[in-house]
Design a protein around this nucleic acid. Structure first.
Lengths: 146, 146
DNA sequence: TCGTCCAAGTTGTACTGTACAACTAGAACG
DNA sequence: CGTTCTAGTTGTACAGTACAACTTGGACGA
């Protein structure tokens, strides 16, 4: 196997290990906000509100899945729906103040966990690792759009 | 935010994106073998057989979860249980020939997908990315052992 | 030898995340 | 108008997971 091939092999293996761990450990860290909910809230914050359909398209989830996630987040008081006056089929989703707080809190704690895990990495390596990950995920857009 | 902090932020975000995608896309690629089953079969191959309890400990899964996964893999004819003659509580799990084949086939196809996704990466970058991932996962051992 | 405790695994139950299909309600356009 | 498209909800099903209760078998001290 060429050295490029063995690097690919390693990347595959390590990404798999990471993926297998991620959900469970995210759940353990934040029982109040699953990885999916966290991602959806983050998206709402970033876009300053959007439609359920947009979330479904962006994350390649079924609209029914998003509908139920959204319903749960609303029940928890983390988001609110605003009927679009232009188009009554549409509900624009917005973070509530509580949602913003929870999101910020979970983000802080996730960030702390990552930071701790990466504490002894030289700054150059952090930057390069970050760039590689971005590039990897960007490259995956075609096959599995985000 | 320092540049190290923003790199950590990016790493967190990108790893999360990746984790969110991984299971779903693994499932789409290989309906016949989930990410978990794949991992368990891989472990059995690597260790040349082990106990259900070992799998549970290694992957931080409940023994009931492993028990059901193992039952399903056995039903599919991918693994077999051999009663330990020394200790009749113990079943040593082994890949069957069919299991070995499926595992090899899925490994090949996963490898091809990764390779394609990484096709235009220079070899140096592949090697560095692989090293970073290994280092990252190794560092996570304490918090979330593998 | 026996009783108690421990270890391996199974089974009952429940919950989450997910998809697909069928449906409702509203919009758009001929 | 009526047809067709779009946004979202609901019914149903399934995978993966955990926890608790249980069964079976081993270990070890009294």
């Amino acid at each position: 196997m060429s050295s490029a091939e063995s690097a690919v092999e390693t990347i595959q293996r390590e990404m798999t290990i990471f993926a297998r761990r991620a959900r469970a450990s995210a759940g353990r860290m934040h029982p109040e906000l699953s990885l999916v909910s966290y991602t959806l809230l983050g998206h709402l914050e970033e876009r300053d509100g959007c439609r359920a359909t947009d979330l479904a398209a962006h994350y390649a989830l079924d609209k029914s899945t998003v509908s139920r996630q959204v319903a749960a987040l609303e029940r928890s008081g983390l988001i609110e729906r605003r009927l679009d006056p232009e188009d009554h089929r549409v509900q624009v989703l917005h973070l509530t103040e509580a949602g913003r707080e929870i999101l910020a809190q979970v983000t802080r704690s996730r960030r702390a966990a990552f930071r701790e895990r990466l504490a002894d990495w030289p700054e150059d390596d952090l930057a390069r690792f970050a760039a590689y990950l971005e590039r990897y995920n960007a490259g995956a857009d075609g096959a599995d759009p985000d």
